[in-house]
Simulated assay, not measured.
Amino acid sequence: MIVIYGIKANLNPIKLQLSNVIHGCMQSVLGMPEDKRAQRFIALDAEDFYYPADRSAAYTVIEINIMQGRSVKTKKALIQLLFQRIEEQLNIAPIDIEITIKEQPAHCWGFRGMTGDEAHDLTYKVQV
């Protein structure tokens, strides 16, 4: 699950393109299949989104929730690719992007009526 926060006036016009960039990075680095896009956009009024003074109104927060298992190298590669592609394709400078990867053990995930550690039919690898 990925949650993206930003100011409504800036985030809404780029939602689809940003979604595509993020999912493309997830596919490239983590091997996520095309049909595993789980994203939520939280578009806030400017008065409801406080951010550091040295950032612009394009400031965007990306929270990536994943099961534990990816290596440090893999997670760093994902973060770097996100910075690169978001800047290239959306003209948002890395200073205006904040990325947090939140990991939880597989037993803390629930989907399709089971916990993540019970799912043995995933179409992607967690240990990458």
Rank of each mutant, 00 (worst) to 15 (best):
E103F: 03
M26E: 13
H107V: 15
C108G: 04
K73L: 12
G31R: 07
V21G: 06
Y51F: 15
Y51L: 12
W109V: 04
Q27S: 00
V126G: 05
Q68W: 01
E98G: 09
I99G: 04
E118N: 06
Q89M: 03
F49E: 06
I101Q: 03
I64G: 03
I62L: 12
G110K: 10
P94N: 11
K36D: 08
P13W: 02
V29S: 01
I86E: 06
Y59N: 10
T60L: 02
G69E: 01
K36H: 05
L11K: 06
R37H: 09
A53R: 15
G116N: 06
R85Q: 15
I42H: 11
Y124L: 04
S28W: 00
H23Y: 08
D48H: 13
K76L: 05
Q89V: 02
E118L: 05
E103W: 03
I66K: 08
Y5L: 07
C25D: 01
S56E: 11
A93I: 06
L122I: 01
N20I: 00
L90I: 02
V128S: 13
A46V: 12
I64E: 09
Y50E: 10
G113S: 04
D35H: 14
Q17D: 13
P105R: 06
V128Y: 13
I4R: 11
L122H: 11
K73Y: 09
I79F: 13
V126S: 08
I99P: 12
I42S: 12
G6S: 06
Q104V: 03
I4T: 14
V128H: 13
I64W: 05
I42M: 13
S19Y: 02
L81C: 01
R112P: 02
I66H: 04
H107P: 09
V72C: 07
I64P: 02
V61Q: 15
V61F: 14
I62S: 08
E88D: 10
A93P: 08
I66D: 05
E98Y: 14
P105A: 10
S56K: 07
S28V: 01
A77R: 07
E118R: 10
Q104M: 10
Y5R: 14
S56T: 15
Q68Y: 03
S19E: 11
G24K: 06
L90W: 02
Y59I: 09
D54K: 00
P33Y: 06
I64L: 11
E118I: 01
P105F: 05
G31Y: 02
E98I: 02
I79P: 04
P52T: 05
I7C: 08
I42V: 15
N20H: 12
T115R: 14
M114W: 05
K102G: 07
I92V: 10
I7Q: 13
F83K: 11
K36E: 05
Y50T: 13
I22H: 03
G113W: 02
N65F: 01
F49Q: 08
Q80M: 06
A58K: 15
K15Q: 09
D117L: 00
N10C: 09
K76E: 06
E103N: 05
T100S: 03
S71Y: 06
D45W: 09
A57D: 15
I2L: 05
E63V: 14
S56H: 08
A38C: 09
K75W: 00
I64F: 07
S28I: 00
